[in-house]
């Protein structure tokens, strides 16, 4: 594998022996087609890493692969979460060990009440004791996210607007207190007000106990959630890493200068459709997509 100097994984400055999340030479395929061609990434608690990239660069694929989606095959490389082999864990084990993915297109599940679901998720992560403090914590988080208590009686994401779905994702993240949170294009589909609420919710969680991987293709997100480190992902590779100034450069000049710079170093970068994102979009479960929609029952 050819790795240009500019693609070296960023070594974070905490100096701790075991990084919270360590991704080494990760390769990911969907339906035997390789999308991620070797990624290195190290994220520690207390850090916010932004991953920027054009559509189709493999950002969502990286997110899904880390969260153990069965359709994404990791063909090479290793990932450690707090020193433990992440790739050997099922999705639920990853979650219980402190990894969280804030989905770009959260699934709607009719029939499962939000409140009941959150209580079960809390119990899975923290054990029976969490059920006792659940109500109090929930009330607190709902307030931060400007969400009404009535959400708890609604079905999971069912009939939620784009903004409501994203808020619900942040709510889950706030309750489950992950050590590493991956946010996949959380800014997409949000109006300005909802966007601010979501960003405030994330900022309220920032601190020494959590590391973020913020995936986005707009700088807007990063104006509200200031990253410590910025990585540019193009063609399934991290082609450049740096500080917040890198995001500003991308915002002003686009990806073309970076592409040219990388290609000048003799590194092959191909642009492609982002299969992962396409896959996620293929699965509408909302009632509005149901061809058998009725005035009440039939969409359920």
């Amino acid at each position: 594998m050819v790795v240009a100097p500019s693609t070296q994984p960023h070594v974070s400055g905490t100096g701790s022996a075991t990084p919270t999340l360590a991704v080494r030479d990760l390769r990911v395929s969907i339906d035997s087609r390789e999308i991620i061609h070797g990624i290195d990434l190290t994220v520690n608690k207390g850090e916010v890493h932004a991953i920027l990239g054009p559509n189709g660069s493999g950002k969502s694929t990286l997110a899904y692969a880390l969260m153990g989606h069965p359709r994404y095959d990791v063909t090479a490389g290793e990932v450690e979460l707090k020193g433990e082999d992440l790739l050997g864990m099922s999705a639920d084990e990853r979650s219980r060990n402190g990894l969280f993915l804030c989905f770009q297109y959260p699934t709607s599940i009719p029939g499962i009440q939000m409140g009941n679901f959150l209580r079960l998720a809390m119990k899975a992560r923290f054990g029976d004791a969490a059920v006792k403090t659940f109500r109090k914590e929930l009330t607190e988080k709902l307030k931060i996210l400007k969400m009404d208590d009535s959400y708890m009686r609604r079905y999971l994401n069912e009939g939620f607007s784009g903004g409501e779905k994203k808020k619900a994702e942040i709510l889950q993240m706030a309750l489950l207190k992950p050590e590493i949170a991956i946010m996949d294009e959380t800014d997409s589909g949000l109006d300005v007000d909802a966007f601010k609420v979501v960003a405030d919710g994330v900022n309220a969680m920032r601190g020494p106990d959590i590391g973020f991987v913020v995936i986005t293709h707009y700088n807007r997100m990063l104006e509200y959630i200031k990253p410590d480190f910025v990585h540019v992902l193009i063609g399934g590779k991290i082609v450049k890493s740096g500080g917040p100034e890198l995001a500003v450069a991308v915002d002003q000049n686009g990806y073309q200068p970076i592409l040219e710079e990388v290609r000048a170093q003799g590194i092959e970068v191909e642009l492609m459709e982002e299969a992962g994102a396409t896959y996620a979009r293929e699965e509408p479960t909302d009632r509005e997509h149901d061809p058998f929609r009725s005035h009440g029952l039939t969409g359920l």
Binding site: S90, A91, D92, F103, I109, F117, A121, R125, L176
Partner: peptide
């Protein structure tokens, strides 16, 4: 899968 990503 979605529920599993929340620890269930």
């Amino acid at each position: 899968y979605y529920l599993m990503t929340r620890g269930l």
